[in-house]
Design a protein around this nucleic acid. Sequence first.
RNA 1: GUCCCCUUCGUCUAGAGGCCUAGGACACCGGGUUUUCAUCCCGGCAACGGGGGUUCGAAACCCCCAGGGGACGCCA
Length: 515
Amino acid sequence: MIDLFRDLFFRRPMAKVRTRIAPSPTGDPHVGTAYIALFNRCFARQHEGEFILRIEDTDQTRSTARSEQDILKALRWLGLDWHEGPDIGGPHGPYRQSQRSDIYRQHIDVLLENGQAFCCFCSAERLDALRATQTENRQTPGYDGHCLALSEQDIQKKLAEKVPYVVRMRVPSEGECVFQDRLRGEIRIAWEQIDMQVLMKSDHLPTYHFANVVDDHLMEITHVIRGEEWINSTPKHILLYQHFGWQPPQFCHMPLLRNPDKSKLSKRKNPTSISYYKDMGYLPEALINYLGMMGWTMPDGSEKFSIDEMQAAFDIDRVSLGGPVFDVEKLDWLNGKYIRENLDAEAFAQVFAQWAFDSAKISKIVPLLKDRVERLSDVVPLAGFFLSGLLPISDADFVHKQLSPAQCKTILQLTVWQLEQLPEWTRESVEQLCQTLSQFMGIKIRETLFPLFIAITGKAVSTSVIDAIYILGLDISRARIRHAVEVLGGVSKKDVKELEKTLRDLQKFLLPAQD
RNA sequence: GUCCCCUUCGUCUAGAGGCCUAGGACACCGGGUUUUCAUCCCGGCAACGGGGGUUCGAAACCCCCAGGGGACGCCA
């Protein structure tokens, strides 16, 4: 409260509160992104400020337009809309970093001229070797300042020869960076802990650290509310603000969402994609409410609240710092409560129909079952699994003439791993994957598919399981296969090790086929 | 390995030095309602990581330890 008072009346008397969410479009829309967006949005709107969305797509190799679309769609589905963004524009655009290259180049030139940044011509090989030596000697890995010794002539010569280079920032060698975290108070980090961060990559695109600071300043962001994982790089950011002579924003690091084992929430251990929760039939109101109770509570203790109610009562200083475990059981209870209390019969019918009979999905399913049914009443028993979550299966379902339960488990685990690595989600790629797995295992495709039929459709006989995986998508397929592995007794750490070895063999097996 | 952050029931949390015999919710266990089940209602189980201080008084403030997590990329 005191901090707030000081900031509002002394440090930045007129500044309108502006916060942002800055997702990187490199994968599925993550619940962690929605979580941080929710708190940023509540904070901004409560102060009659603005919440903006910026796309951080400076990693050209991993960013995709598809992922950007999915993220925007998922955030909107949850009711997290923004005042400015790549889709709606605004006075501080463009809001996609890949379209702001000129801005970054101008700013990097300033640092280069002032000697606050320098060109580094070191090869990836040299840096790898350096890191390896440092790790071996139990030193903190980091750049050794090699190119700092280059003379102006050396630099000009290398530039003329078009030797690839990056731009790194200079960092003080002594002293410490002291900054305030809104939730934690003073944090001190010694400058010797801070690496000479690359600011501009050899593809001339900025790194996160650089683009983020430049954009946050130009977009007039007053409060940076982000995940705890960024605490250690905050000194780099503060140093950049200082170099440019800019007023840094107020930093506020939120606790990280956790898996049940307390590690940072990850899709290997827990479904993290917002689309998964949508496909499983969670209501957006329930999911966003649930995220709002991670590290935060309403002052009156109520647990069911809308995003507007949260915003009205919001107080960021009441965020608790222990990393909250994402507990699906409590989410289930909340979602049920929303269905029971917020939907009357008519609304329920409408919501259900909208969820179940998505026309794109239906048009893919219909061809699979139309020729297999004799009565319309056969449809639900045959294809009900398309509208289900996890299936009620048991280890008895996996009994098979040729395959042992252990083999079933191996097939299932290898299939998930392979599905996760699929560069493109098409029916053909799923089929190809099953074919090669069957060749690799030296068994017929029919047998390879058996455990997948049980895991995905719940029965040994059903519509094409390959099409089913393709239509259900990675999130649901992964959840069902994982559930099946659990039903078969799960995998021990020892099993995982062996399976990973088998996976490597499988990948070796795949290589010649791809030539 | 180095640095940083965190620590209340199994889980989400309340707690601003005396309202704490530590409250609520999920889960779990009992009971009631219900033709079954679910819902709903009632009850129960269950926590301040450890050790030192400060104080008349500590879950709360300070220190140490332990445990957990995170960061150390031309990823974000």
